[in-house]
């Protein structure tokens, strides 16, 4: 049993950590709160949660997460970034010189919908998931441009809001704020495949 359990970490420097842990556990994985870079050695996949990307990025630099997460990704281990996590994973951030992790081949715009009064929720169809997902967008970013290897999984008003590049998954909305765990199940499947090489357990 323990051998087969998927251990998925949630980067816990700031943001909606507990919600992701709950969603991951509902999706059949074991959720691990990651506060130290060394903990990356113990997990099979990583979620970078919503929060404030400037705060998360700053604390990642301070505590030596940048190199370690880049190596984690280099090893082919899946990473899922939601909202701030999407920004942190991007290679290019509009209006900002330096990216944070610079892993995923895309350009993103922060607060792309505007301020909090423009935040909203909606039903969003996602490629690979049967029925639409209830998607909560909070001061959400958008994906403006993507590289050739990035696959768009959903669009809202013709803007890209969910995408995947191999072992990297991003959403500009917050799947962790609802009781719908399908996107976490989707990610757990990515982690399972990367760990065992088999599609479904």
């Amino acid at each position: 049993m323990a051998e087969n359990t998927l251990k998925i970490g949630v980067l816990a420097l700031q943001g909606a950590v507990a919600e992701h842990i709950r969603s991951l556990e509902q999706a059949g994985a074991e959720g691990v709160i990651v506060k130290r870079a060394q903990q990356l050695d113990e997990i099979d996949g990583l979620v970078i949660p919503g929060g404030e990307s400037t705060t998360i990025g700053k604390l990642m630099r301070q505590y030596g997460f940048i190199d370690r997460i880049q190596a984690f990704s280099e090893a082919g281990k899946p990473i899922f970034g939601t909202c701030a996590g999407l920004i942190v994973l991007a290679k290019r951030i509009e209006g900002q010189e330096e990216p944070h992790l610079g892993l995923m081949d895309m350009t993103v715009t922060r607060n792309a919908f505007g301020r909090q009064r423009e935040s909203f929720e909606t039903d969003l169809p996602i490629k690979g998931i049967d029925e639409p997902v209830r998607a909560v967008f909070i001061r959400a970013p958008l994906i403006r441009e993507i590289g050739a290897d990035v696959e768009v999984l959903s669009v809202y008003n013709e803007e890209m809001v969910t995408a995947r590049e191999g072992h990297l998954l991003v959403s500009s909305f917050h799947p962790e704020l609802t009781d719908d765990y399908r996107l976490h199940e989707y990610f757990a499947d990515m982690v399972r495949q990367s760990k065992t090489g088999e599609p479904k357990g």
Binding site: A12, L13, Q14, G15, A16, V17, A18, E19, G50, G51, E52, T55, C83, A84, Q116, R117, E118, S119, F120, E121, T122, V136, F137, I138, R139, H174, L177, T178
Partner: peptide, 20 residues
């Protein structure tokens, strides 16, 4: 599309967690 729902409003505070 719905703005200003309690999930959207409470969710915004969830994103502040662990912060100053």
């Amino acid at each position: 599309m719905e703005a200003g729902t309690s999930r959207v409003k409470r969710g915004m505070a969830e994103m502040q967690k662990g912060g100053v």
